[in-house]
Design a protein around this nucleic acid. Sequence first.
DNA 1: TCTCTTGTCTAGCAGTGCTAGCATCGAATC
DNA 2: GATTCGATGCTAGCACTGCTAGACAAGAGA
Lengths: 194, 194
Amino acid sequence: MSVQERKERERAERERLIVATARELAEQQGWDAVTTRRLAERIEYSQPVLYSHFRGKREIIGAVALQGATELAAAVRAATAAVDGPRERVAALARSYLAFAARNPAVYDAIFQLDGGLAYAQEDTPAPLKDAFAALLECLGEVAGDGVDSGLFTEVFWASLHGVATLTRSGRLPPEHTEPRVELLVDRLAIAMV
Amino acid sequence: MSVQERKERERAERERLIVATARELAEQQGWDAVTTRRLAERIEYSQPVLYSHFRGKREIIGAVALQGATELAAAVRAATAAVDGPRERVAALARSYLAFAARNPAVYDAIFQLDGGLAYAQEDTPAPLKDAFAALLECLGEVAGDGVDSGLFTEVFWASLHGVATLTRSGRLPPEHTEPRVELLVDRLAIAMV
DNA sequence: TCTCTTGTCTAGCAGTGCTAGCATCGAATC
DNA sequence: GATTCGATGCTAGCACTGCTAGACAAGAGA
């Protein structure tokens, strides 16, 4: 019994190591550099060990995405919690979202650009993803404005942030004017109700 | 002299064939399926021929992107030209943009997601890309509102559309409510001046 | 007709994700 | 303590990727 428990513990520990290493490697050199060979070498096991934990590279990306979604939700909640006034709260949300994307580009890609084999916007969507959307909704719901569904509003605001984040990072938007872009988005989209 | 001209003509024709075939293959089976071997087979030449026209796969993607940007600019201009009123013009622009992205997903990716080795938002940005942005600016500039730079406004509106387009296609946004999302974006962002 | 450039092909490199099958280690039994 | 035997990680290899060196043939010009 105790032997089996120890083995399971060690297995779980190794799985964490794989995910952490994949994430680290992706942030350092991009997802293209995360090959099964390199990853296996870094965790000091052979390639087939990876496949005893994950079905393939896609699932590893998915695992990083779930971890990242949890952190993104926490970051957004932390950034908005102490802010007074709906307008300023939304501005804080936008800034923290873009800061997360800029600081963790590989993780952001895992969540929102790459195929990690995860279900989005469905019943069987993993909890961390649902919760990340919920974190946005909590703050954005109060500025949707009369007659506008808070879910729809959250989707649109989120999509706008996503567009700014991805276009900026790929060099399609010059990075200088991010702050006025955020101001414009918040001023126009958010309707602070009394 | 005439011989050389004929050869140049044939070369240019083959280059068009490569780009068209790459695009077709990408739309049919996704960019992952566009391998140099498959592409070479489809154009009925060997792989090295591709490298006598382009430095590599990246440049082929870039060529598809430039072609697509030209078409996108034309589509947006065609959709907005005959529409009366700034508000409705902007709505037409948004719908035509999203329709282009939905109808040509591989081309859209080549322009806005993949690395085609092109310079964006700089002096040496290729003309088709500059012109596509100009097409957006022509229409969006008139609804930027007082005191807001039309370039900045165009960037933000474009980023929002880009977010909706990409998140919808990757399944992260449910595809059903695209129209109300567009309505919301247009109503909130665009300020129709008198 | 012969030469020589130009252009295309075959073959191969180093890398990718993934897997079959062998070897070894260690827990459980006698 | 010796022995079985299942779990587990390894080596080696598959079919594929982007890309390139070098052989070879076709055709223009003398």
